[in-house]
Amino acid sequence: MGVVERTWEWLTTTAHWSGTDGVWHRLGEHLFLTVVCLLISCAIALPVAVLLGHVGKGGALAVNISNVGRAVPTFAVLVLLLLSPLGSHGSWPTVIALVLFAIPPLLTNAYVGMREVDRDMVEAARGMGMTGTQIIARVELPLAFPLILTGVRSAAVQVVATTTLAALPGGGGLGRIITAGFRLTDTAQVVAGALLVAVLALLVEGAFVLLQRLLDPMRGHPATVRA
């Protein structure tokens, strides 16, 4: 029997979907970690990026932080946190690693989005007597919105990927199905787990693409900003 058939068989066996090691439970863990960590990172990164972008300072920080995020291996950070004193505190090492790696795309995209807003428009708004807060809320944020959401989308996909990796040092989530498959040298289970993870990542990406289209405040207006 080929790998494809055996994978199909694994996926269609109801026993694999129930229980603490089952797909549904692992999926629940995966989604829970993803949502919580995404919310925490947005709460940290977005206000900072919007403020920095508004005053036009800290551009080097916003760009460099994404370079740093790229150079540091996620796997290494996960393991380092596990071996640190934090490691004995349940899923905290995973949560911290997830938040750390979600921040760079959020920060960079939101900052670039704010900076790319046409300066003439900001000047015009100021000339109309708008205060700084009003400019942020009514001019800059709506115009920067597509890029901010792009950042959230990247961060979400990143968090899904990192959560998968967190299974290596023993975290929860769908990655556990893959690592358990490797331990059992059960290729069918490895492939089944990988498929589930890939589908989840693509669904998250797709959902955000859709959300981006639906929520864009400039929807229906001619694109004037993205020159």
Binding site: V3, V157, V160, A161, T164, L165, A167, L168, G175, I178, G181, F182, T187, V190, V191, G193, A194, L195, V197, A198, A201, L202, E205
Partner: peptide, 17 residues
Amino acid sequence: TILYTIPSLAMFSLLVP
């Protein structure tokens, strides 16, 4: 872009067979 979205652990696992 689709390939880029797939998490690395899943990508490597899918290539194992």
